[in-house]
């Protein structure tokens, strides 16, 4: 049997979101599962990021 072309990504923080984006660009269907109401994880709580001091959101 051919393998499924879908992938489950557990966690919607910056790592999960990046994995999901790359996989969809690579031609796979992605289920992104996050326990909270919105994605972004801890990075969405940060004010600025070092060293560029870009806004996190």
């Amino acid at each position: 049997m051919a393998k499924s072309g879908s992938i489950l990504v557990l966690g919607g923080g910056v790592a999960g979101v990046q994995t999901a984006l790359d996989l969809s660009d690579l031609g796979y269907y992605v289920y992104l599962v996050e326990k909270k109401a919105s994605i972004g994880g801890v990075m969405a709580q940060l004010d600025k990021t070092f060293p560029t001091n870009d806004c996190s959101l």
């Binding site: 072309g5 910056v14 996989l23 796979y28």
Partner: peptide, 29 residues
């Protein structure tokens, strides 16, 4: 940190893509 997490995220996508290369584009819309 963030850059390393982002790097690993793309890396994990590559490995999934290696494993499922034959099923690429089979379930996308």
């Amino acid at each position: 940190d963030i850059p390393e997490s982002v790097t690993q995220a793309s890396g994990a996508a590559a490995i999934a893509s290696e494993l499922l290369a034959d099923s690429r584009n089979s379930e996308t819309v």
